[in-house]
Each structure stands twice: as structure tokens, then as C-alpha cells.
Design a protein around this nucleic acid. Sequence first.
DNA 1: CCCATGACTAATT
DNA 2: AAATTAGCCATGG
Length: 104
Amino acid sequence: MSKNFQEAVLNIVKQIPEGKVTTYGAIAREITGSVRAARAVGHAVAKNPYPIVIPCHRVVRSNGDVGMYSLGVDKKIKLLRVEGIEIKGRKVVNIEKTLFYFNF
DNA sequence: CCCATGACTAATT
DNA sequence: AAATTAGCCATGG
């Protein structure tokens, strides 16, 4: 396990494969067991240690909205599209199909 | 230790 | 379907 929250978040984000996405809440659940730390997860990746290297652009909101990004929302959307994810407006199309599920 | 902040969420309007 | 609201939590000052 990780010694701090941010590291835990980044370790999980690194597991997200190309073409898939996850949500802030899901990551929070992986770490704390509850969706309540979702906001803290966002705060953690916001520090953004290594943009692109760590695919934090594959983390979106629970309602499918792409959410924020340190390099700009446009950049985030662009990256996701390049990876084969369909986005309409600011939302991921058919997010249920695109979600990556961690195995316990 | 208290307070403000934010890449969020769920529920309500 | 879009906007508001209240709740939550890890940081930093």
C-alpha cells in the first residue's frame, strides 16, 4: 500500500488501460471504501505530477462529464478521443461501456 | 487547530 | 435535461 493518499490515487490511475475511463468516486471507493472522498481524489490528481505519463485524463465524473483537467478540458477531451473514447459535448458517450472495473 | 478551497457526488428543483 | 444545494474529504496556510 501507499504511504499517502496522493500516491494511492496515482497508483490506481496508472492501472487504467487506454480506451477505458474511471470516475473520481470509484477511485475514492478503492482507497477509502466510500465514494465520499471523491473530491479529495480530484484534489490529489490536481497536483498533477506527470501529466500524460500518468493518465489522469482517463478520470471523469460519475455522470459522464469529463470534468476538469490541469492542461485544459479541451486537451483532456482530445486525448480521450485519440484513445478511442467517444465524447459528445462534454460527456462521454455510453460511459457504462467505457468504464474500467478494478478487480477487488 | 480552524478555515478555505476544489479535476466530486447525489439528491432536489 | 440543466441548474442549485448540501455534504464530504485531503491539503495548505
